[in-house]
């Protein structure tokens, strides 16, 4: 239990909060999905640091689940949502 790791997790949290601007104004749909993926990785890092900072090693397992399921949303998006819109209006992705 050390407060230094909690400070590191606290530094990483505004990175998530400011990345939200890209979701709000991203021109293509892939930009928004990429930001969600960055959030996933940031969340894994925050969980790892917080697990040491709060003295609960259980958080490693939660980070493991996050890392396992990180690609699922992006894969679904690319394979289903984005592929479909390319057939309808070519080169003009869903906004």
């Amino acid at each position: 239990m050390s407060w230094m790791h909690t400070v590191f997790a606290l530094i990483l949290l505004p990175a998530i909060a400011t990345g939200m601007f890209r979701i709000l104004k991203g021109p293509t749909a892939a930009d928004r999905m990429m930001t969600a993926q960055l959030f996933g990785t940031c969340g894994v890092a925050i969980l790892l640091l917080l697990g040491t900072g709060m003295g609960t090693p259980v958080l490693l397992d939660i980070a493991l689940v996050f890392a396992l399921l990180a690609a699922l949303a992006t894969m679904t998006f690319v394979r289903r949502t984005w592929q479909y819109s390319s057939k309808r209006n070519h080169g003009n992705p869903i906004q």
Binding site: A30, T41, A67, L68, A70, A71, R79, S86
Partner: peptide
């Protein structure tokens, strides 16, 4: 796991963006 997931999905996004011109 994060390495595999991020490289695979970033490659998919980039390829799909290239396909969409």
């Amino acid at each position: 796991l994060v390495l595999i997931a991020s490289s695979a999905s970033c490659h998919l996004i980039a390829r799909s963006a290239m396909q969409k011109n």
